[in-house]
């Protein structure tokens, strides 16, 4: 199970939505795509789900090109792209049955599957009403429920907590966490809430102006440690930037910080350590850059 984007470029007229994106997702887990509005998050998901064809590049899901084997790929995928809309005169339960039947689920198995996704998304109360009477939040829950039908190997969720009240958002986050508990699925979701991304993700990708600005590869998020002082021998194996004669910024994985602290204290006379999240730092830089360019 993997997702691969090779040199994917997408333009809307002259506007570059995605610029030569290379991305490989080989391991299960939660992969969050973060970025400001217009960064290309939703476009990336549209390309992954075959809704939008790139000008250049290849999109492969499990070795299959989405635009050549669309049906085969979508069989393994659950998607929620943009704010979901459904046919006004159809009931929520009928939509779930329809999605289940297209995934080859029928009879008692279908009933059980619908009950499972309904319980997971808390959509039981409104499922027998026609969609035309649904609120934004109800449609969002139904959208997540349809994505979960068939227990897909790959889940693509575009801002899944959008339009849902704070309690509901918490439930959805818990649901995503639970879906990831056995680390069997690739769950790709977009958000613009940094805390949500940091709390949930195994890997964070930050997009800006259609380009990947940051990709914390599998294995945890990097923390930036600003060190001030005289350092003799720099401990090997750490990426760093020297910002002035006595100031350095190290990129260290969260779980390696105690070990790093031990090594760096041994290496010199450390006066000051400032800690910040790499994701927060990148987002801050992007915001400043975008503000300057606007």
């Amino acid at each position: 199970m993997n997702v691969r984007l090779k040199s994917v470029e997408k333009y809307y007229g002259k506007f570059r939505a995605l610029g030569a994106i290379n991305l490989e997702i080989n391991d299960p887990g939660i992969i969050t795509i973060l970025g400001p509005n217009g960064a290309g998050k939703t476009t990336m998901l549209k390309v992954m789900t075959g809704l939008s064809k790139p000008r250049k590049g290849i999109v492969e899901i499990d070795g299959n090109n989405i635009f050549e084997d669309r049906k085969k790929v979508l069989m393994k995928m659950g998607t929620l792209v943009e704010q979901p809309e459904f046919y006004t005169y159809i009931k929520g339960r009928e939509i779930l049955s329809f999605s289940a039947s297209l995934k080859g689920i029928s009879g008692e198995e279908m009933k059980a599957e619908i009950e499972r996704v309904v319980a997971a998304t808390g959509s039981n109360d409104f499922l027998d009403k026609k969609v035309g009477k649904y609120s934004r939040g109800m449609k969002q829950r139904l959208g997540i429920a349809t994505a979960l039908i068939g227990d897909p190997e790959i889940l693509i969720l575009d801002e899944p907590t959008f339009g849902i009240d704070p309690m509901g958002s918490l439930e959805i986050r818990e649901l995503i966490k639970n879906l990831n508990s056995r680390k069997e699925k690739i769950i790709i979701f977009t958000t613009h809430v940094i805390e949500e991304a940091i709390k949930l993700s195994d890997r964070i990708i930050i997009l800006n102006n259609g380009l990947i600005e940051y990709d914390a590869s599998n294995g945890g998020e990097y923390t930036l440690l600003k060190i001030s002082g005289e350092i003799g021998d720099i401990p090997p194996g750490y990426k760093y930037t020297r910002i002035s004669e006595n100031e350095y910024i190290f990129e260290v994985r969260e779980e390696e910080i105690p070990e790093f602290n031990r090594k760096i204290t041994k290496a010199g006379n450390i006066k000051y350590i400032e800690k910040s999240s790499m994701v927060e730092e990148t987002i801050r830089k992007i915001s400043v850059k975008n503000l300057k360019n606007s």
């Binding site: 669309r70 979508l74 979901p84 297209l102």
Partner: peptide
């Protein structure tokens, strides 16, 4: 226009 395409075109069925 009603944005139902996002749902229906991501279902595993030929267009």
């Amino acid at each position: 226009e009603n944005r139902t395409a996002f749902y229906i075109f991501t279902q595993p069925v030929d267009r």
